[in-house]
């Protein structure tokens, strides 16, 4: 199972790689990273969507996470892939919007990695 993390912040990659070092080494999690919505869509082309879990930030320059969600869900209205949206604290509007557009779950920043780990494990 591939976990595609979509975030414009470069450090997210470092954070995920360090935080899940053990899981990555154990082959439990396989992370891929995209810096934007467009990049993510490009990556998804030719991929087996059923084997991918997308973890996307909402607020990004260029294509936002919501737009990315819209485009993915426009091609495959029902899952896969599993899509979890990440946004800033208390952005209720984005939460509602994402859930309505077919997001599978919702996480708020700052990420609680213990909670994320559980969610990822249960989704894989």
């Amino acid at each position: 199972m591939k976990i595609l993390v979509v975030d414009d912040e470069e450090d997210v990659r470092t954070l995920f790689e360090q935080r899940f070092r053990r899981e990555i080494k154990a082959g439990e999690f396989d992370f891929a990273f995209s810096g934007s919505g467009e990049e993510a869509l490009e990556y998804l082309k030719g991929q087996n969507l059923e084997a991918i879990l997308i973890l996307s930030d909402i607020n990004m320059p260029g294509m936002s996470g919501i737009e990315l969600l819209k485009q993915i869900r426009s091609k495959s209205p029902s899952s896969p892939p599993t899509i979890m949206m990440i946004t800033a604290y208390g952005d209720v509007e984005s939460h509602d919007q994402a859930m309505n557009l077919g997001a599978n779950d919702f996480l708020t920043k700052p990420l609680d990695f213990t909670e994320l780990k559980q969610k990822l494990k249960s989704s894989l």
């Binding site: 912040e9 450090d11 954070l15 360090q18 935080r19 800033a88 604290y89 700052p110 990420l111 990695f113």
Partner: peptide, 17 residues
């Protein structure tokens, strides 16, 4: 908030590391 999130996450991570 975003940089702060990193501060929090990396500090927590650093404690674990």
């Amino acid at each position: 908030q975003n940089p702060l999130n990193f501060v929090n996450n990396f500090s927590e991570l650093s404690i674990d590391i």
